[in-house]
Write a protein that binds this DNA or RNA. Structure first.
Length: 497
RNA sequence: GGCGCCAUCGUCUAGUGGUCUAGGACACUGCCCUCUCACGGCAGUAACCUGGGUUCAAAUCCCAGUGGCGCUGCCA
């Protein structure tokens, strides 16, 4: 517990939020809350070309959906507008360009950075040449040779330029990563990173360091793809004489081919999973376990439990495969604990286009009874229409031959169905519930000397039209006497033909 | 190519020198329940990347190789 801990989630608004980003956000959130510290949301929109309108709103909405409340950062007002909240704003980097420019000037003045007037073509040619010579492609510092007059002249001519970090060429940069322990890079292999682009916007490397420092971030939790650029960030902290924060580089999330999760091979957006009917808690529970576990046999955790138990230092080093099978299992686990009315609410969007559903729409009792039967049989909400469709429409499409149980035959089945029908007629509509039907019919079959399979398979099939379904008693309890008898009679008629 | 990170069942992982004939979960298989499916219960198959060291003893420490991934952009 360290109340001084400050973490942040700093996504780029370039589209839908990725499940990998969700995990980074989750770990950052958990670590802050676990310590009783602060959690900040910052938007890194310094690449104007990749900016997607609406993406910031989307990020905020996803964070709200997940329940990651943050102490500072952009929030959504009731009318859907972005509003900044917190003492260290703005939290959207494109609004902070003046800050970056000022600090860049400081770096230049102190000799930690320099202007580079090379064009993209110059750089391209330089890289090609370096590659042909088999040397590491790095900026050759030609603009560092420029005299003060030359620089002044170019500035007067309004020659576009970038500002580069002057990386020390000696020694090593060593830092401790919470997850990876000691990491070391040889300084002479670190390129003179562009800090300020010619459009006046900072690159990630400059903005991230300045903002993390100004916003008081103590623990940087980010994806492993940033590990190799950490030395550049450390140089900057040193140049500014700022304390270097703690780093935790998270292992990547990969697909079953061990490739970075990609759109081509499956869903990567959090929204894709929400749309498929995966529950929030299940997604978070599944995702937190991809790279971390509390070292017990337990697998199901609520967010508050995670806050209590999460430890950054326990996070794994190796990349984790995003395995849908396990997500399905976790989701099923959560689905089964949900109250039926809640499942109905959440499923409304999936059910509304179901044939016959509109006739029952107001009859929530009926819908909920149907859902209760299928709740343990589906993996996700979007499976529900397929599962309960037969309750709403009596137009069941099946081959009458399927009414015959595998160990039975047609004549026996016709007889069993007829007898069942006669017995069922004796029930009042009020008594037509599973608790009364099941013992009575079971006893009836026994007394008639009819196999359970011979009698109940065809009943169930006639009622549901499916090989796999809840028991006939359960279905009849939902459908009621009239509808149930009609379906069984219809099945019998079709079998007799 | 260079640099870096990583490496336990198919997957997520426990394991920090002896308690490992390597534990749990998902998936898979079988059994129980049962008219079917699901749920639930029980059982089973299945892994320490390879090669060298260090040590009385290595999944655990060191080195090399191999493989995977990341970075190598005026993207983040």
């Amino acid at each position: 517990m360290n109340k001084n801990i400050v973490t942040r989630f700093a996504p780029s608004p370039t589209g839908m939020m990725h499940v990998g980003s969700l995990r980074t956000a989750l770990y950052s959130y958990l670590w802050a809350r676990h310590n009783g510290g602060k959690f900040i949301l910052r938007i890194e929109d310094t690449d104007r070309e990749r900016f997607v309108p609406g993406a910031i709103e989307q990020i905020v909405r996803t964070l709200n959906w997940a329940g990651f409340d943050y102490d500072e950062g952009p929030v959504l007002t009731s009318d859907g507008k972005i509003q900044e909240r917190g003492q260290n704003g703005p939290y959207i980097q494109s609004k902070r360009t003046a800050i970056y420019r000022e600090y860049t000037k400081q770096l230049i003045d102190h000799g930690h950075a320099y202007r580079c007037f090379c064009t993209r073509e110059d750089l391209e040619a330089m890289r090609t040449d370096q590659q042909q010579r088999g040397v590491p492609p790095m900026y050759d510092r030609r603009c560092l040779q420029l005299t003060e007059q030359q620089i002044k002249q170019k500035l007067d001519q309004k020659t576009p330029y970038v500002v580069r970090l002057k990386v020390p060429r000696d020694g090593y940069t060593v830092f401790k990563d919470v997850i990876r322990k000691r990491v070391q890079f040889e300084n002479k292999l670190v390129d003179d990173q562009v800090l300020l682009k010619s459009d006046g916007f900072p690159t990630y490397h400059l903005a991230v360091v300045i903002d993390d420092h100004l916003m008081g971030v103590t623990d940087i939790i980010r994806g492993e793809e940033w590990l190799s650029s950490t030395p550049k960030h450390i140089f900057l902290y040193q140049a500014f004489r700022w304390p270097v924060p703690s780093y935790a580089h998270l292992p990547l999330l990969v697909d079953r081919e061990r490739k970075k999760l990609s759109k081509r091979r499956g869903d990567v957006a959090v929204d894709d999973y929400i749309k498929k009917g995966y529950l929030k808690d299940a997604i978070l529970n599944f995702i937190v376990l991809l790279g971390w576990n509390p070292k017990t046999a337990e697998e199901i955790f609520t967010l508050p439990e995670l806050v209590k138990r999460f430890e950054l230092a326990q996070v794994h080093k190796a990349a984790a495969v995003f395995d849908l099978e396990k997500l399905n299992w976790v989701n099923g686990k959560y689905l089964r604990t949900l109250p039926v009315p809640r499942v109905r609410e959440l499923s409304e969007q999936y059910l509304c286009s179901l044939p016959g559903y509109q006739d029952y729409r107001a009859n929530t009792k009926f819908i909920e009874k149907a859902i209760a039967l299928e709740q343990s049989r589906i993996k996700k909400l979007s499976d529900l229409p397929e599962a309960i469709g037969f309750f709403f429409s009596e137009k069941l499409d099946y081959d009458p031959a399927q009414l015959v149980w595998r160990k039975s035959d047609r004549p026996k089945t016709i007889l069993a169905m007829q007898k069942a029908l006669d017995r069922l007629e004796l029930f009042t509509e009020a008594d037509f519930v599973q608790a009364k039907l099941e013992p009575a019919l079971l006893a009836f079959a026994k007394e008639q000397g009819i196999d359970n399979g011979t009698m109940f398979w065809p009943l169930r099939f006639a009622l549901s039209g499916k090989e796999r379904s809840p028991s006939p008693f359960e279905i009849m309890g939902v459908l009621g006497k009239t509808q149930s008898l009609r379906r069984i009679q219809s099945g019998l008629n079709r079998l007799k033909k």
